[in-house]
Amino acid sequence: MNFASDNIVGASGPVLQAIVEANAGAMAAYGNDEISVRVRARFAELFEREVFVFFAATGTAANALALSSAVPPYGLCVCHREAHIIDDECGAPEFFMHGAKLAGLPGVGAKLRAEDVDAYLKGLPKAVKQMPPKALSISQVSEGGLVYGLDELAALGRVCRAHGLSFHMDGARFANALVALGCTPAEMTWKQGVDILSFGATKNGGLMAEAIVVFKPELAEALDYRAKRAGQIISKSRLIAAQFEGYFAADHWLDNARHANRMAALLSEGLARLPGVRLAWPTEANEVFPIIPQALDRALKAAGLHYHSWTELSLPETETIGKDEVLIRLVASWATGEDEVRRFLEIASSEVSRQAAE
């Protein structure tokens, strides 16, 4: 059983079927095909307004290109210190921003608070020796598995407007956050001040399906050129676009996300009932972050269960990891079966009982 990531499973049936159907015949290349046109229109429907949509093959490319449109080489992008863009993308955003820097701020559960961002921005020197802040980037869902509420997003949007920053959202798990909040895509983005979005589908049933969705027109002006230079203007773009057609059809994307979140909730509830196990943060989407005894960690791995240990940097001040404990991350996906979750819990419960009896 593998709970290491939602990247480890393949593409869903509707997405694969859409690729097969799009594969037949000849169509215009480089995004000028009828499928790409339809999908761009579908994005506009979902977000309830005109948007600019640029397809990409990876989330790293989407993030790096999105930020390059908002931050000049002499600028600064503010993010959480554990954000994916600063910790997991090998400097790609800074590379594509041609030397601009990422400034990582602390925050519980890898979330940023508007008041902390505001205080940081107000404290920056205004002299030419200081790189001026040009963008704020947040991960929705955060790297701690937490979801920004609409009021939190609105507060961050106000801070961005007050300081003249573009507001970027890394939506690698956009659908998981959306169903957790029970709102619309528009309500979770531009209506709260988001200017540009990295819209991820790969973790939620796509094969390789990412998009940059731009709400602020001036940020879209050079993205075609930036994407071309990055090798992200794909000749057979219809096969990227088709994935979104299968993804959106009959709300398949939302069903996938609801299932993943439900499996994570089941896993979280079961683990929280075990003696000696507690949650580092609430389970709000499809990731679970339990603190478990090291002996249980060893036993789970010996039983062939796969997951990752996790950083303690964003724990609440009231929480510490004991010398005989470890913080781990478990991720449920659209393909995670309830039988897998229950089997994981059975193994964990049995091992906790065995260790208590020793």
Rank of each mutant, 00 (worst) to 15 (best):
M1G: 11
M1E: 12
F3P: 06
A4V: 11
S5F: 07
S12D: 08
L16D: 08
E21F: 08
E21I: 05
A22S: 10
A28E: 13
A28R: 13
G31Y: 04
G31P: 02
I35Q: 04
V39L: 10
R42Q: 15
R42Y: 13
A44Q: 12
E45Q: 15
L46T: 08
R49G: 09
A56S: 15
A56H: 14
A61R: 11
A62Y: 07
A64I: 13
L65S: 06
S69R: 03
P73T: 14
C77W: 01
E82H: 14
A83K: 02
I85R: 00
D87E: 15
P93N: 06
E94K: 07
H98G: 04
G99A: 06
L102N: 01
V108C: 11
G109Q: 00
G109S: 07
K111N: 00
V117N: 00
D118A: 11
G123L: 07
K129T: 07
K129N: 01
L136I: 09
S137D: 06
Q140K: 02
V141W: 05
S142Y: 05
S142V: 06
G145M: 00
G145Y: 03
L146W: 00
V147S: 02
G149T: 14
D151H: 09
A154D: 13
V159R: 04
C160T: 03
R161C: 02
R161A: 14
A162Y: 02
H163S: 08
G164Q: 11
F167E: 01
H168G: 04
H168V: 01
D170W: 00
D170V: 07
F174T: 01
F174E: 04
N176K: 10
A180P: 05
A180H: 02
L181A: 08
L181T: 08
P185A: 08
E187V: 03
F199M: 10
A209I: 13
P217T: 11
P217F: 10
L219S: 04
A222S: 15
L223D: 01
K228W: 14
I233T: 13
K236V: 10
I240L: 15
A241R: 07
A241I: 10
E245R: 07
W253V: 13
R258H: 15
A264D: 03
L267M: 14
E269N: 13
A272I: 04
R278I: 03
W281G: 00
W281H: 09
E287V: 07
V288Y: 01
F289Q: 02
P290M: 03
I291T: 01
I291L: 02
I291R: 05
D297C: 11
A302I: 12
A303C: 08
G304Q: 07
H308D: 11
H308N: 13
S309K: 09
S314G: 05
T318L: 09
T318H: 10
E319K: 13
E319C: 14
V331R: 04
A332H: 01
S333K: 05
A335N: 12
D339L: 08
D339K: 14
F344G: 05
F344C: 10
I347M: 11
I347Q: 04
Q355R: 15
